[in-house]
Design a binder for these strands. Structure first.
Length: 425
RNA sequence: GUGAGCGUAGUUCAAUCGGUUAGAGCACUGGACUGUGGCUCCAGAUGUUGGGGGUUCGAGUCCCCUCGCUCACCCCA
């Protein structure tokens, strides 16, 4: 409609929404603290190579979804499509291998992918990203899964489905790959065109296919579990035992895969039926070979990323609580030029004493100002006019009860503080 | 990148078969109530009907192009 608009796939988070976002971040921050994760702030762009190696240069994300450009020094730069690679880079760069392991960190911020937007999908979207680096122990996996579910529980999300699987490791995956490709070859007629090409490059991805025809084929596909090596099988068993021990409901999904070599062992996703076809609110797993893939030493790791935009959508649909909507304590109402100067001064005193306050500078009618006070959900209106100025007082009106009284201007801060704390209790 | 649907005040939506000055609710502003919000009533302001071209005596309505939005595919948060 207007020429003035944000680019495709990005959006503004406006005041009516932003306080809800703040609530979600607060819950994740508190949950992080309860699980011993420290917050870090990472750059939103990195060398393109980091993602090419850290995500995999044959993935869709890297092949066609990255925002990549040359900077003025002719360096290839990419806006991060996800945070895990940056997190591992940061761990390696700052020699965190010297710290007690695992190093548990989380971060949040916008991610960028060049895709056609649709429900639950944006070109700039927010994730919270948690990573536990340096421990190969299956309980690290359990902790990550528990953490994500605990945060969702605190946010009030319901009807979530947890899917888990193991994708093995470079030891056992070739055998499984062979088993799968033998199986799919035997039923190649029933596969879609893209899956047939996947058969060569990466038969694991066929398990992902959503087409009806392919699904009936993958339905009967041999499960990974049978092909896992001893270590991977033990690991998977312990993860499941850990989840069972904490009473976490989950569903084994043999079709859940991560196609690349540095993804190992545990893979999991959390789905919500409240979204459209982009129904994952959280995805994660183990990536014991990622650090090496980006040129570092061997550092096992496990983590997850949750989509904040999608979480908010689910919360809206399920009418979850977002805590208390921000409001102000006092709205100043001035009836003429002199009282406007007076109320400005009084508001300043309020604000210096931790009482939130606002007013209208426009010289509008008293009725209009009272209306604004209501609209702003102010607890009190402080009214100043000719008669108050003469008497050295301020009229204070409780906007819930409608009661009002005149208070000496000299003790206005103390009196208002009293009223506010009385209302709170 | 592919496909489908939809673009009308700030917003949600009307507008007969193509018919003359594009309307209504909500929100906003003002008033009824010369200094008192929420409820009620009255009044007011707000449009390049996304843009461009075409058909027609006449286009918000039909056709073409374009832009945008939405949903889906691919893939993922």
């Amino acid at each position: 409609m207007s020429e003035i608009s944000a680019p495709k796939g990005v959006r503004d988070i406006l005041p009516e929404e932003s306080w809800k976002w703040a609530y979600v971040f607060r819950v994740f921050r508190e949950t992080a603290e309860d699980f011993g994760y420290s917050e870090v702030h990472l750059p939103i762009f990195e060398h393109t190579e980091l993602f090419a190696r850290g995500i995999g240069d044959t993935t869709d994300v890297v092949e066609k979804e990255m925002y990549t450009f040359l900077d003025k020094g002719e360096r290839s730069i990419t806006l991060r499509p996800e945070a895990t690679a940056s997190m591992v880079r940061s761990y390696l760069e700052h020699r965190m291998g010297a710290l007690p392991q695992p190093v548990k960190m989380w971060c949040t911020g916008p991610m960028f992918r060049y895709e056609r937007p649709q429900k639950g999908r944006f070109r700039q979207f927010w994730q919270v990203d948690f990573e536990s680096l340096g421990s190969p122990h299956p309980y690290a996996d359990v902790e990550i899964i528990s953490l994500s579910l605990e945060a969702f529980r605190r946010l009030g999300l319901s009807h979530l489905e947890v899917l888990i699987n193991s994708v093995g490791c470079p030891e056992c995956r070739p055998a499984y790959r062979k088993t799968l490709s033998d199986y799919f070859s035997s039923r190649i007629d029933e596969l879609c065109e893209t899956c047939r090409s996947r058969l060569e490059r990466n038969p694991l991805r066929i398990l992902d296919c959503k087409r009806e025809s392919c699904r009936s084929v993958t339905e009967d596909a041999p499960a990974v579990y049978e092909s896992l090596c001893g270590e991977c099988r033990d690991h998977f068993d312990m993860v499941r035992a850990g989840l069972d021990g904490t009473g976490t409901p989950y569903r084994l999904d043999k079709r859940l895969v991560r196609g690349l070599d540095y993804y190992t062992k545990t893979a999991y996703e959390v789905l919500s039926g409240a979204l459209g076809s982009q129904n994952a609110v959280c995805g994660g797993g183990r990536y014991d070979n990622l650090a090496e893939a980006i040129g570092g030493p061997h550092v096992p790791g496990v983590g997850f990323a949750a989509g904040v935009d999608r979480i908010l959508m689910v919360m809206e649909q399920q009418e979850c609580s977002f805590g208390t909507e921000p409001s102000i304590d006092v709205y100043g109402v001035a009836l003429d030029r002199d009282s406007r100067a007076g109320i400005l001064h009084i508001l300043d005193l309020f604000r210096r004493n931790g009482i939130s306050a606002d007013m209208d500078f426009g010289g509008r009618s008293m009725k209009a100002q009272m209306k604004s006070a209501s609209a702003r959900k102010a607890r009190l209106a402080c009214i100043l006019g000719e008669s108050e100025l003469e008497r050295g007082t301020v009229t204070v009106k409780d906007l819930d009860s409608g009661e009002q009284k005149e208070i000496s201007a000299d003790s206005i801060v103390e009196e208002v503080q009293k009223i506010l704390s009385a209302v709170k209790d």
